[in-house]
Amino acid sequence: MFKLGLVINPYAGIGGALALKGSDGQAIREKALLMGADKLAVEKTRIALEYVITHQDKLHIYTAAGEMGQELIEHLGFINTCVYWPNNSQTESFDTQATVKALIEQKVDLILFAGGDGTARNICEVVNNKIPVLGIPAGCKIHSAVYGVTPQATGRVLEQVIKGKIVSVSDAEVMDIDEDLFRQGKVKARQFGEMQVPTEVQYIQAVKMGGKESDELVLADIAAHVIEDMQDNPEHIFVMGSGSTVEFIMQELHIENTLLGVDLIQDQQLLASDVTSQQLLDYTHGKECKLVLTLIGGQGHMLGRGNQQLSAEFLQGVSKQNILLVATKTKLAKLEGRPLIVDSGNVQINKDLAGLITVITGYRDQVLYPVADYN
């Protein structure tokens, strides 16, 4: 079951048609309502969700009460769970942020939200790249790259993600302008951060060698991505799993790889090789870790085939965000849409890892791919 988080800023864009240059601030919203402004964010969300109504049996939506999501979701007939209840009829930015915090606790696969740049900025402050997001444009100001060009476009991308299609994910800028200056005729925009956004693309986005992936070049790109992460986090222990893609990363580090074993890297140096499950626990106890995995076997096993040293006790201490899953797009395509398989030996870990996971497919090139929930 795909777990979708939903946040609607019902007041997004209400000042636009009335030339109020935005909707930030309670006073502006009250003025817009007194002038007869229409709240269009809910309708724009409905347009986007129309694209996934036929996938209701695969979808569980987590949202906030009332106009922030639940009213619309129940009207459309989606399975839903309410995770937040605003105290006032006119919602504020803290309601948006409280909802997002609750959605992260629910470990949703993707957060869908409707609003403008102010809404994106509020969400960015909480999400901090912990989970992919996708925006429905509903505000007066849409400078941020986290939104679809239209609600329909957002709906199409959402449909591709829920259907388990190979969808790239990239860092997108969150921008906002100073509304007070904007009302004086001055545009002053600046970047407030980045969030990960799924992007609908052709399968081979950047073609190499006649439109096909060159294994060696792509593996070098994947290795560069992981090694850059190691450079940025020298204190982390990188637990290197089995598989040819992981082996290539070790070669790029000029470190001998243990075939069908687990090696430990810290500050781009070998910490330990071919460790047992107990040694792995001893080395990583109380330390920040990242787990580097690839797909093992023809059925897309991510855990449970060739990496039994990764015990349930160890995996309980590694968040989904700290799993660096590496694979070429060609390798993913050979699965023909079948989800990845996790067989950790622990039902709860299997459930926690189910849903979407980010797969590193090149240098700063990542895609979203589903992990099956067979429990």
Rank of each mutant, 00 (worst) to 15 (best):
M1F: 03
L4N: 05
G5C: 08
V7P: 08
A19T: 05
L20F: 07
G22Q: 01
D24F: 02
A32S: 05
G36H: 04
A37T: 04
L72W: 11
L72G: 06
V83H: 10
N88F: 10
F94C: 07
F94R: 12
A98M: 10
F113C: 09
A120I: 08
E125D: 13
N129I: 04
C140P: 00
G148V: 08
V149F: 08
Q152C: 01
Q152F: 09
R156Q: 15
I162N: 05
V169A: 14
V187Y: 02
V187T: 15
F192R: 02
Q196K: 15
E200H: 10
V218W: 03
I222A: 09
D232P: 00
N233P: 02
P234C: 07
I237C: 02
T245S: 14
E247V: 00
H254R: 14
I255Y: 10
I255L: 15
V262H: 01
Q268R: 15
D282S: 11
Y283C: 05
H285P: 00
G286P: 00
L293I: 05
T294Q: 11
L295R: 07
G298M: 03
N307L: 08
E313N: 10
I323E: 01
L324N: 07
L332N: 07
A333T: 07
R338C: 03
P339F: 05
P339L: 04
I341Y: 01
G345M: 09
V347P: 02
N350T: 01
A354D: 03
N375H: 12
